[in-house]
């Protein structure tokens, strides 16, 4: 039982590290600031949560309160940070690279400032 727990913990920590790596690669590879926030917020948060769950398994459930708190804080702070950074970027005039659907926020801002 104890060995199985340790094994599950290692697997989870490894998976979490893999997701964090993918998130970091995404920050390098994706074209503009907004797409990079996607990668940093989603893959980064999931990676950190998996590592924390791995720590929970590795300690045999003793650290459950710490893990619970840390996961809750991560789930709140990661999307908030991504939202605030991208919103500030848009306000400062960083234009997203968009496909055929375009940038609805920019159009709406133009319309309300023309009025």
């Amino acid at each position: 039982m104890k060995e199985a727990m340790a094994f599950a913990g290692s697997i989870l920590i490894l998976l979490g590290a893999l997701f964090s790596l993918l998130g970091a690669l995404g920050v390098c590879r994706l074209p503009d600031a907004y797409s990079r926030m996607h990668s940093a917020s989603k893959a980064g948060a999931l990676g950190a949560i998996l590592i924390l769950l791995g720590a929970l398994f590795a300690t045999g459930g003793h650290a459950w309160f710490n893990v619970f708190l840390a996961v809750a804080v991560l789930l709140v702070s990661a999307p908030m940070a991504a939202h605030i950074i991208s919103r500030a970027g848009h306000m400062a005039g960083v234009r997203p690279k968009v496909g055929p659907l375009g940038d609805a926020l920019e159009r709406a801002k133009d319309r309300s400032s023309n009025r």
Binding site: F19, L22, G23, L25, G26, R29, L30, P31, D32, Y34, S35, H38, S39, K42, A43, L46, G47, P96, K97, V98, G99, P100, L101, G102, D103, A104, L105, E106, A108
Partner: peptide
């Protein structure tokens, strides 16, 4: 969501086609 981002990152010649919608 993470799998989606991972797929996007790992496929070499695929550039995302983003948009801002209301």
């Amino acid at each position: 969501a993470s799998m989606n981002v991972a797929k996007m990152v790992l496929s070499p010649h695929r550039q995302p086609e983003s948009a801002v919608v209301r």
